[in-house]
Design a protein around this nucleic acid. Sequence first.
DNA 1: GCCAACGTTGGC
DNA 2: GCCAACGTTGGC
Length: 154
Amino acid sequence: MKYWLMKSEPDEFSIDDLQRCTEQKTAWQGIRNYQARNFLRDQVSINDLVLFYHSSCKVPAIVGLAKVSQPAQADSSAFEPSSPYFDLKSDPNAPRWVEVELTFIAKFVNQISLKQLKADVNLADMMLVTKGARLSVQPVKESEFNYILSLCEH
DNA sequence: GCCAACGTTGGC
DNA sequence: GCCAACGTTGGC
């Protein structure tokens, strides 16, 4: 069992959108960064747990929990010319980008803001709060994950 | 909207 | 393979 943090702009796709999806599942498409892609492709496994993070919004925060319900497969949006994620260089015979499927688990009543995360000495080493951590798919240590969940339950 | 910090591209 | 120019992310 591994733990991840995945970012989404709530204007594009929020935790509420995930909860409203059919069967509360969605294809996590549009990752166009090689380091993030490599995590998705090589390390993210079915049943891994995912902290859902809202970025580029008024209060950036960890807002909920999801799980990986399907492992990596070709990101079909890369082949759709009408998609904002279209990538001419992704060959269907050798897909450059991958997607996973996420399933909603919970929306946190106590959302943990970036400000709060940064101020917490217990999370000083968390990738999200280290300088310049722009990765949209990040590994989270088990200790960090459990600690964050404990904050959300307060 | 600004801009720092990264990431990518492409000429050489 | 270097690196300048350009593009993107994302907090503020």
